[in-house]
């Protein structure tokens, strides 16, 4: 992502302006159930008064998901061939003719049609998710998708946004970038921040067995990481700061329960478009249970005493 930049806008802009919306490798009907109705497809916006009728929806997904069923155009790409399809779309956009009937399982006619729709959009928006980043090519798929969006900006206004799974993925990236200059995967072992995805990222460190202790907080890698990574987690000392029992806490040596942010404590979270929103406290936490930040403060104090 750092290689090509990243054209962004807010969800409000999409709601008010977008007449073409693409979901690539994401299924918002299940993973982000109110995304389409609040911000992108069904929402009535300032320049899109009729909501859904004023917008064209394109879904790229190998499966016929519930989101794909709602689409005007469903590009049913073959698994792991996203990069090919993006490249084909870029080629068509640049005026080249496709030399085959199908690219990545998608009929050439449909690709021409989709590109034409994107090119003629007044304001387009591409949402992408794990379906693109987790298939063959990984972050290179995103580089290519960003390049497609850049190419489209020669004709019209087009934006791009990752569909964030957890509610504050973006918040952590914002904080870490603010402090170290890098969004994730920062290695402090040399005393200064170093960033090299693939080398300094959690999954890779675990799979190669390079880390000898893990502190897990507010996520569940035990359920989501590849088996080889989880096997290493099971071998090393593991501390979990998590309110609930998860597959990860079952591998832990120490479990420290925090109050649930956004339910039992207030705080700040960044929406997927980078808008910070104040979380509210709705009920009191169970007696004696501390917020994440208090637990970390105590940890910092203890670590300072030991160093």
């Amino acid at each position: 992502m750092q290689d090509v930049g990243y054209p962004v806008c807010t969800l409000g802009e999409v709601k008010n302006r977008a007449d073409v919306v693409i979901y690539w490798g994401s299924n918002p009907m299940h993973a982000h159930p109110r995304h389409m109705s609040r911000y992108s497809v069904f929402a009535r916006g300032f320049f899109r008064e009729r909501g859904r009728e004023d917008r064209t929806l394109i879904v790229v997904d190998p499966r016929e998901t519930d989101s794909a069923k709602l689409a005007d155009i469903h590009l049913q790409v073959e698994p792991h061939k996203d990069y090919e399809l993006i490249s084909a779309m870029r080629a068509v956009l640049k005026g080249f003719e496709l030399q085959t009937d199908k690219v990545a399982g998608v009929p050439a006619d449909l690709i021409y049609e989709a590109v034409e729709i994107c090119k003629n959009a007044q304001f387009g928006q591409l949402y992408f998710a794990m379906g693109v980043t987790m298939t063959r090519g990984k972050h290179r798929n995103i580089d290519n998708a960003i390049s497609l969006v850049i190419d489209l900006n020669a004709y019209t206004k087009f934006g791009l946004m990752p569909m964030r799974g957890h509610y504050n993925v973006n918040g952590f990236n914002q904080v870490l970038t603010w402090v170290t200059g890098y969004p994730f995967g920062v290695d402090f072992s040399r005393g200064y921040p170093r960033y090299n995805p693939g080398e300094t990222t959690a999954n890779d460190l675990l799979q190669r067995g390079e880390t000898d202790m893990m502190l897990n907080i507010a996520s569940d890698p035990g359920a989501h990481f590849p088996q080889k990574a989880v096997q290493h987690m099971a071998k090393i000392p593991l501390v979990c700061i998590d309110p609930h029992e998860t597959p990860t806490t079952q591998l832990a040596n120490i479990i420290i329960p925090p109050a649930i942010a956004g339910v039992e404590v207030e705080g700040t979270a960044y929406r997927m478009d980078g808008v910070p929103i104040q979380l509210r406290k709705v009920i009191d936490p169970p007696e004696g249970v501390l917020p994440d930040r208090e637990i970390l403060k105590m940890l910092i104090k203890k670590v300072k005493e030991m160093l």
């Binding site: 964030r164 799974g165 957890h166 509610y167 504050n168 993925v169 918040g171 952590f172 990236n173 914002q174 904080v175 870490l176 402090v179 170290t180 969004p183 994730f184 995967g185 920062v186 290695d187 402090f188 072992s189 040399r190 005393g191 921040p193 995805p197 300094t200 990222t201 959690a202 999954n203 460190l205 880390t211 893990m214 502190l215 897990n216 907080i217 507010a218 996520s219 890698p221 989501h224 700061i241 925090p258 942010a261 956004g262 404590v265 207030e266 705080g267 700040t268 979270a269 960044y270 910070p276 979380l279 917020p291 994440d292 930040r293 970390l296 403060k297 940890l299 910092i300 670590v303 160093l307």
Partner: peptide, 30 residues
């Protein structure tokens, strides 16, 4: 590792902790 389901002040202290102990700090975006 983790961070994606908590608030930003916790993140801030987390980065401080990582720097103190020379850790690798990462979240689910990776």
């Amino acid at each position: 590792y983790g961070w994606s389901a908590t608030e930003c002040h916790a993140h801030m202290y987390g980065v401080e902790l990582a720097e103190l102990v020379g850790a690798v700090i990462d979240n689910t975006a990776s």
